[in-house]
Amino acid sequence: MITLGIETSCDDTSIALVRDGSDVLANCVANQDVFHRKFGGVVPEIAARKHLENLLPTIQTALDMASIRMSDIDVFAVTHRPGLIGSLVIGLTAAKVLAAVFSKPLIAVNHIEAHAYAACFAGMPFGTENISLIASGGHTSILHLKDDQLRLVGRTIDDAAGEAFDKVAKSLGLGYPGGPIIDRIAREGNPTSIRFPRPMLDQPNLDFSFSGLKTAVLYHLHHHPDAAREDLSASFQAAVIDVLVEKTMRAASLLKVSTIAVVGGVACNTALRTAFAQKSERSGKRLFIPPSQFCTDNAAMVAGLGYHKYQAGLRSPITIPAQSNAGFEPEPIRLSPSDV
């Protein structure tokens, strides 16, 4: 069974073809980064227009790569929330039209849930109870997947982790996007050279905060304008990683979950991957971090999740709307002092 996935929730137009939920035949991303780099970020109106321009050529590329015809597709899966409304609408409308024209089912999925699904591309069996850390430019959350239910047990109370990478990179004059740049530069620096704060580690919950770390870097930079960018990057990155790893491990031990998934664009960070590998090895947890192409926004995760939703009997009505919000109510977990 072949699923076509469409993902246009933010700045990348992505189309994927996936067989039986896990066999990725094509995962194409028309990336707007080069275009946006000039502006130092995402420019939504242009993002929406670019999605429109990119969509059909990207579908064609995916079909060509997989040697598949449109009429071979069994299910059309698409992200319908959360994201930038103008961008979501373009992918969603395309999926609705295709599903109607080819008389095939439409499956609309939640972008956050799709990110969590990406761990299956690292070999995690579908439906495994796990703690997922989703860290990207727009999201930083800890989710508990149990009995096919995702519960939001922790989240950032201010900036997302990827946003902190971008803002710090911009302040250091390093360019955009900040994540890959800091990852690269940090390899040449000493992560213990500057002791930046580890925000929220002493709080009895699973929430994150990165705005204080962002300001600590700015303050240090102001008073040490000549500080080596390598050391600044490495020390900042080390603080982000410490908090992400520590809180995720805490969630797993508190909820007695033995499987951890790390997904979202920040999961491409090489030092983060290493830190998680070491920590989960030491605490005997199983760890799944997908290859980078399934961490950043991609349609393979949408197609994969869409396939399983289809198998479970879900069908989305043609009237389903795009929604900017994620639709998850947080279910905060209180930690006892001994857990902190």
Partner: peptide, 16 residues
């Protein structure tokens, strides 16, 4: 009610 839910909309552009 929940002040923790008030987070940066730099990526999402609008929070409600």
């Amino acid at each position: 009610q929940d002040i923790s839910s008030v987070h940066s909309p730099s990526f999402t552009l609008i929070n409600r």
